[in-house]
Design a protein around this nucleic acid. Structure first.
Lengths: 115, 115
DNA sequence: GGCTAACGTTAGTCATCACTGACGCAAGGA
DNA sequence: TCCTTGCGTCAGTGATGACTAACGTTAGCC
């Protein structure tokens, strides 16, 4: 039996986006200020191309919003995109706390199955 | 100027571990029950080798704990490992909310710099 | 000691991905 | 119209990673 859980394309995309340190750094920048792509790229030593691709990934993951102003593109973090991740972590966290509590109480997995 | 943020090896390892769907599925399993490696592997269609490697990654990321019982190795989720991720998300979330509020108030980035 | 069960580890393969330079494109100003 | 500025896109490359089969190791039973 294959267990893969519910289909979760959005969560997967968001977590894959956050798994890259440079994208987290970019997200931190635009979490504090709305910034144009050029200014974001200037904050890093990698090429402007690389930063542009990171911005595309973050945008597809719905972690940032893009707004156009002439030839400039302004980016900022998207709070609701992070909220979903909090939900995932909270669920895992409470579940794991339950297991910890049961183990302390001596109620092993086999006990619960036998009962 | 290169901006990479504070060194965050633990956060990085945890997020990289969670970026893989199979590892999230494994984590969900051991968040509900403490399970031996064989039983975890039986829940998936990939080889036992692959699951063992996933368990190693999750263990190194401090997202699960391992306990030995004879030849068996029992695994379960580690609540404190998830708490760190919650902290990261909370910080980003509140920062992005601040930016959203400032933009709504018409206090643009340029305004704050000029002022 | 010999055997089996339950796992981890190693070596090798294929796909993914972060990166670069070159190019394309839209929005102004002269 | 021509030129520049600000960015995204394309094609190619090296590194990472998820996977498999084969092998090594430890615990317990006979």
């Amino acid at each position: 039996m294959e267990v893969v859980g519910p289909s979760e394309p959005e969560l997967d995309e968001a977590l894959r986006a956050l798994a890259e340190p440079r994208r987290r750094a970019i997200l931190r920048l635009v979490a504090h200020d709305e910034l144009p792509a050029g200014e974001i790229a200037a904050a890093f030593e990698v090429s402007r191309t690389a930063v542009s691709q990171h911005l595309t990934v973050l945008k597809n993951a719905r972690l940032i919003d893009e707004r156009r102003d002439g030839t400039r593109r302004l980016y900022r973090a998207r709070p609701s995109g992070l909220a979903q991740l909090r939900g995932f972590l909270d669920e895992m966290w409470s579940s794991s706390l339950d297991v910890a509590r049961r183990l302390v109480e001596g109620d092993s997995q086999e006990d619960r199955r036998a009962g």
